Amino acid sequence: MKISYECGPCFLRQAREAMDLSTDDEALKMEIMSEIFKFLSQNFKNGTNSNSTGSLMHNMIKEKTGCMDPYYREKIEGNQIALKYLPEVKKILAEDDSLENYVKIAIIGNILDFGAFTLDDDIESVIKSSLKKDLTRKDIAEFEDALNKYDNVLYLVDNTGEIVFDKLLLSKIKEYGVNITIAVKSEPILNDACMPEALEAGLDEYGELVEIGCGTVGYVDSQISDEFREIFNSHKFIISKGMGNYEGLTEIDLSDKDIFFLLCAKCNTISRDIGVNLHDMLLFKK
Rank of each mutant, 00 (worst) to 15 (best):
K236A: 04
K64C: 07
D258P: 00
T181Y: 01
E6F: 14
N101M: 15
D204W: 14
C10W: 09
L112F: 09
M281E: 11
K128D: 09
I61M: 11
N233C: 15
N79P: 00
S171W: 09
D113Q: 00
S271H: 11
S52G: 07
I123M: 07
S225Q: 13
L86R: 06
L93E: 03
P87C: 09
V103G: 02
I81F: 05
E230C: 06
I224S: 03
E144F: 04
D145R: 13
G215Y: 04
Y206A: 00
D192M: 07
Y85H: 07
V164W: 04
V89M: 09
I36H: 01
D280W: 08
K64H: 06
D204T: 12
I105V: 10
S52E: 15
H58D: 12
N159Y: 02
K266Q: 14
D258I: 01
S130T: 13
V217A: 11
N43S: 15
A265D: 04
I123A: 00
K149A: 09
T48K: 14
C10H: 04
S98W: 05
R229S: 10
L168Q: 02
K174I: 08
Q80P: 12
C264N: 12
E6D: 15
I127L: 12
R73G: 06
D113P: 01
K38D: 13
E77K: 06
N46H: 13
K266S: 13
D97L: 05
V157G: 03
V276R: 10
L40R: 11
I238Q: 06
E63D: 14
L147R: 03
L56T: 04
Y150V: 08
S171L: 10
F237G: 03
E17V: 13
E100Y: 02
L249A: 09
D120G: 10
D120H: 13
L249I: 10
K45D: 15
L99S: 09
A94Q: 07
M57T: 02
N268Q: 13
N51K: 02
D134W: 15
M68H: 08
Y155D: 01
D122Q: 07
A82C: 11
S55L: 02
D273G: 08
P70V: 06
D120P: 03
E77P: 04
E74G: 05
T53C: 15
T65E: 01
E247G: 06
V103I: 11
E88W: 07
F11Q: 09
D258N: 03
D113A: 00
Q14H: 10
Y246G: 08
K132T: 08
E17D: 11
L169Y: 02
S225P: 05
E6Y: 11
T269L: 10
A141G: 13
V164E: 06
V210R: 01
S255C: 08
Y246R: 04
L119M: 09
F117Q: 07
L203A: 00
A146F: 01
M33E: 00
Y102T: 05
L99V: 14
